[in-house]
Design a protein around this nucleic acid. Sequence first.
DNA 1: CGACCGTTTGAGATCCTTCAATACCAGTGG
DNA 2: CCACTGGTATTGAAGGATCTCAAACGGTCG
Lengths: 233, 233
Amino acid sequence: MQLHVAVVSAPRPDIANLAVCRGLGQKVAGQIVAISSLRKKRRGETLFAEGDMADGIYEVVHGTLRLYKLLPDGRRQIVGFPSAGHLLGLAPEGAHVYTAEALTDVTLCRYPRASFDRLLDEMPGLARRLWAVTADELRFAQDQLLLLGRKTATEKVATFLRMLADQQGSEDEVDIPMTRNDMGDYLGLSIETVSRTLTRLKRAKIIAMSAVDHVVFLNHRQVELLAGSQRNA
Amino acid sequence: MQLHVAVVSAPRPDIANLAVCRGLGQKVAGQIVAISSLRKKRRGETLFAEGDMADGIYEVVHGTLRLYKLLPDGRRQIVGFPSAGHLLGLAPEGAHVYTAEALTDVTLCRYPRASFDRLLDEMPGLARRLWAVTADELRFAQDQLLLLGRKTATEKVATFLRMLADQQGSEDEVDIPMTRNDMGDYLGLSIETVSRTLTRLKRAKIIAMSAVDHVVFLNHRQVELLAGSQRNA
DNA sequence: CGACCGTTTGAGATCCTTCAATACCAGTGG
DNA sequence: CCACTGGTATTGAAGGATCTCAAACGGTCG
């Protein structure tokens, strides 16, 4: 239902160096692009839901998604906010284990399961690359376990802001592309606690906010300390 | 400092079908065994610490480990209790991101980084297998995120008991091989809360305990409900 | 038997949540 | 231009789940 053909015959330049391909040969990268197709979702739309059969692997080209799991009564845990360059649906087989929704308008590159499997057999480096990517995600998830299990609300928020900043390559300013609700469901906090914590950080002159979705770090030292950067452990 | 030579020249039968090898050819499995060496640790000993250079990959042959991360002030989050068949140190490069300690006496099989890398190049199926294993661990970690971020103490404990039971292949009895302290640090709870929660489950006739480290499920239905098994979502 | 270590229980404090009201902001229609 | 509306964010007050501190209990091992 997408523009496969158009894409394949005239891939856009930014597709040419997709993250999956990085580190693989030129020819090989071409083969990957050949099986891919673009897909777009508007803000709020669902890409796939927890429990759906995983019929493909996706790479985010543009925009940000929200991945989450639900408890029967509706409590939600967001497990990630993948943006450009991230892969999802990496479970090699079976059903998706989380729901993926567009946080902003997004463009994705889709690799159908079957073709992808074939490529895995043909291209020696690919599986290894996917292993590396998945291992990285695992490491990230384990950091998040520490955050959810053992950090206080203030530490959680500080960690989150630093994380966003790193992701945006910004040293002392952050845009927050998600709502307080999303932040809360990512950090294991209520929306009110997120809000109050930000207020407290403002009052303590650790951050400033020019808008509800824009934070400036005033006291880097303190932010690092609260985030409990691994290096100082 | 271990019995490498003895092992390599006379691998014990149970080593022959290690988990890494599963699904790989007979010949290929032999090659893997060839680069491996056995290592033993006694209860309480440290296999490697967070921050140590990852010089190898380990597979648990016998016993159980405790993997954890620390905050600067000593707060601890246990990220897993790998037992026979599990792989660790799967980060393809760099430093270990958690500490690994022996929960019980353990036997491990070690694959040195360098030799392992060589094998990865030579054996097409291996990287893919490692990808699958790592993806599985990731899925598990994400379930744990939901637990830590959104479940109540009672739900956490119930989930934990069911998880242990599944692991032990037992339908309605569980041995708890770790202390309350370990349980707490795994579930993001204090040791007292773990204890009180178990007491409440006992009083509610949902479980019974013949010893501090042995639980019997009395009301399966209720345990499942509390654990919030994914399927009912 | 006594010491030790882990577990349980109790009481009080704390952090975070819940419920409720208010504030803010962008978009819409009068 | 401004009031109105809907959605999100902030703030307040009260309650509750979990934590901390402290003491008692229980099993194990010399």
